[in-house]
Design a protein around this nucleic acid. Structure first.
Lengths: 333, 333
DNA sequence: AAAAACATGGCAACTATTTACCAAGTTTCT
DNA sequence: AGAAACTTGGTAAATAGTTGCCATGTTTTT
């Protein structure tokens, strides 16, 4: 593989000039630039990014940690991050945390050992304190779908409270008044906030929050089926069900159908996240869009702006969810 | 950040010894190893992977190119690759090709510029010749879900012909004899092979292949709905529909239901790939499992064996698909 | 025509590690 | 006790660039 020495020799210019052409920081006359570029082409020269990194103390790589590489959210988030960074000549190193504290810490350690210039973390198990401590290190960190007030400029998240509000509001708008709700684990901030939004929407219509129509699920299909079973067994009637994510909505749908419900006629169901399969469910799931792709792009922009000093980038830290009307919520008669 | 010099000083050993501890290639006595490790802990030393790469001419990174980071196949494939490589201390650099020739070439160029030790490619647009030429370069390449006979030891793929055969056989086993088939683009090898398998299964039962029950789709939902529409308009009766992938099966399902079919009673539908949403469809889709996660793991193992010289690794280049029985194919009466 | 701005050369220090070499010292085996 | 095997030290070259400095030569401006 050719080196800058060979390029400089062939082009008949100095080493420094080749470097100037490469790094575009000092002016170089068009004539010399052309000579250098021709020499590079002739030799098939490709800068050695490893040597560049060592000398400049920049690896041009951004570490990404997500819970799972499969899973519905991740793909779109990654696609957003990758496209922005790649366009800027940076690359992405990915690893997983599996939502377990030890594994998340291991993953972070792994990325740090790779000399990433920044980390974008989508972590769930690790504590706020750990993240605050981590952020004091030399490598800047950014958080996806997580809000830590001490690091708020480093967070990209959606307004879950608003999302919860919009979900229930959309159901109320169809005339439903008896609305069951399945939430996620209460130690997760997004579950809590979505629930707050739900309660706010109810309160606005002067509908009392009913503990009998409230169930704590696990964010998976099982949570949805268990929740619906619970409500049915309870015999408190309801015409609509709002779930804190799409997986649980899907579980509830399956359970409902297996127990003689005709959907959406007998029960309106609302999801949250607008995950890929929401559109494949029957009936197609009405849900709240979680703009993960845009959020991924924004996280990448945030890195470009703050780590790589790119100018003229506007940052939006909090994203607004919106309702996706499909077929699973219909008018209550 | 601490360097090996500081470690060697604190541990009271030579530079060479620290390097020996790090690289585990020469024997070091337990006592010295301990001294060195203690010094490392005390200093919070972390090897600089960039400097290691430069000096050893190994980046310990593997480049991955896929069509899309979202998309149902990719996540599982990635998860398989990443878990294996990460366990071996290697990392993964990911980029996308969007199934366009120029973008795939760009992506490959990008990964090469990152000094990857190997590339795992999931490419569709680029020609076999290009890949053969590329494989002559210094960086070894491996192909996922693509079979190029000249590079067969570098390919990890499934037996699509067998898959197509099993799909139709499973439908035949339920007593169906009038079976419609929607294939994908005929320039894609996997479409062609799945179709060959389909024909073979029909032939075994002495059922003639009927052009009226054959449609070329686009591997998307639209292909499924267009195909089913075509068959219905044709008025040739059939009790089962086999699709060359799950997306088209889903499109066909939706179209069927919108046109008064009750599923699966009025029409049995078979998919291919066992993509995540197959389990969320209604009725749950009977399909052919495409073991992408295992294939990803195998690709990683292949890299570990051939590039990183790990021993005792058994390689399986061709994977066998199998039938996943769910609810969308039922007995024909 | 003088001054200022620009372009380039040449040099040297720096980045953190690997790898190879041989010599010297220390254990272990016989 | 002597030989063999193992462990460690010390050194030096190599990896492929970046960065900063100053000198020199060339344009451009005034």
């Amino acid at each position: 593989m050719a080196t800058i020495y060979q390029v400089s020799e062939l082009a008949g210019v100095s080493l420094a000039t080749v470097s100037r052409v490469l790094n575009k920081n000092t002016r170089v006359s068009d004539k010399t630039r052309e000579k250098v570029e021709n020499a590079m082409n002739e030799l098939g020269y490709r800068p050695n990014s490893i040597a560049q990194s060592l000398a400049s103390n920049r690896s041009n790589s951004v570490g990404i940690l997500v819970a799972e590489l499969h899973g519905p959210i991740f793909g779109h988030m990654m696609a957003g991050i990758e496209s922005e960074l790649r366009a800027a000549g940076k690359h992405v190193i990915i690893t997983t945390g599996h939502s377990e504290e030890e594994k998340e810490k291991d993953g972070i350690e792994f990325l740090l050992s790779r000399n990433c210039d920044a980390l974008i973390l989508h972590v769930e198990a690790v504590s706020d304190e750990f993240l605050i401590e981590l952020s004091k290190g030399t490598v800047p960190i950014y958080l996806m779908s997580r809000y830590v007030s001490e690091l708020k400029d480093h967070c990209i998240s959606i307004d879950n409270c608003l999302g919860g509000y919009l979900a229930t509001q959309a159901v109320l708008a169809q005339g439903h008044t008896d609305i069951a709700y399945i939430t996620g684990h209460q130690y997760k901030a997004d579950s809590v906030n979505r629930l707050i939004g739900h309660k706010k929407a109810l309160a606005e219509k002067n509908i009392a929050f009913d503990e009998n129509l409230f169930f704590v699920g696990d964010y998976k299909e099982t949570g949805g089926s268990a929740g619906l079973k619970h409500f049915i067994d309870n015999k408190r009637s309801f015409s609509a069900l709002v779930c804190a994510n799409d997986e649980m909505a899907s579980g509830a749908m399956k359970y409902a159908r297996e127990h003689g419900y005709e959907l959406p006629k007998d029960l309106s169901i609302m999801g949250f996240d607008n995950v890929i399969f929401a559109n494949y469910l029957y009936p197609k799931l009405t849900t709240i869009d979680n703009p993960v792709s845009d959020m991924g792009k924004m996280a990448a922009k945030l890195v470009l702006k703050t780590v790589y000093n790119q100018k003229n980038i506007e940052i939006q830290n909090i994203f607004e969810p919106k309702v996706i009307m499909r077929k699973s919520v219909i008018e209550h008669k």
